[in-house]
């Protein structure tokens, strides 16, 4: 166990502010945050073409257009997960600290210590307002985006981890960001990390 490093995963509902919370925690602790740019970093490190893969990240698998058996798979999401697991696994092996937002981060850091696995959720109104503002869309479109994104995250995570994506038993902290707001939630999580 490397006591000097800290591994933090933030799983999050779309619109709950998990990405921002991850950034705040990363900045305060001075450690890298792996988020939407993780795949790009992976592709850069291994020399893969990012444009070929970017559309499949955290999306559900197409049941009728892909096949998988044993260790073999034609599912692009499986290949992305494998690349990211390999990349993050290497960082863990090197003793690096980081915050990982989504992308099955909880599964990746589960067996390592010290680690904090958080799930950020929020009430629908809070999320929809944030999505409308952030993506400049109407209420209905924000609702559809939220449903689609969360479905993708759920299916992606549950394909590679055991248990349900939003089951509190799979996390150390399960927190509603709508109660305290983004910054206070980040502060609370930081305190949890420091106490741990």
């Amino acid at each position: 166990m490397n006591k000097n490093r800290i591994l933090i995963s933030i799983s999050r509902e779309f619109g709950s502010g998990g990405h921002e919370i991850g950034k705040i925690i990363g900045n305060k602790l001075g450690i890298p945050v792996y988020d939407a740019d993780l795949l790009r970093k992976v592709c850069e490190e291994y020399g893969y073409d990012y444009d070929e893969w970017k559309n499949f990240e955290e999306t559900p698998r197409s049941l009728f257009l892909t096949r998988a058996f044993g260790e073999f798979s034609s599912v692009p999401q499986d290949h992305i997960a494998e690349m990211e697991f390999r990349y993050i696994g290497k960082k863990i092996e090197e003793g690096k600290s980081f915050v990982i937002v989504g992308r099955c981060g909880s599964k990746m850091i589960k067996e390592h210590a010290p680690a904090v696995r958080a799930f950020v959720w929020a009430d629908e109104d809070f999320k929809i307002k944030r999505i409308m503002k952030r993506h400049n869309v109407e209420n209905d479109e924000a609702f559809q985006m939220m449903k689609k994104k969360d479905r993708g995250r759920r299916m992606y995570t549950e394909r590679f981890s055991e248990g349900r994506w939003d089951d509190p038993k799979n996390y150390d902290v399960y927190i509603n960001s709508g109660k305290l707001g983004i910054h206070a939630t980040a502060e609370l999580l930081l305190e949890y990390v420091e106490l741990g």
Binding site: C43, Y46, G47, Y48, D49, E52, W53, L65, T66, R67, A68, F69, E71, F72, S73, S74, P76, D78, H79, E82, M83
Partner: peptide, 22 residues
């Protein structure tokens, strides 16, 4: 890509090496 097991294996090996075959 899904018609035979060999196709899935080929695509899988390519994917593991970062080559996407859709």
């Amino acid at each position: 890509p899904i018609g035979a097991s060999a196709n899935v294996v080929g695509i899988s090996v390519a994917g593991k090496h970062g080559r996407y075959i859709g």
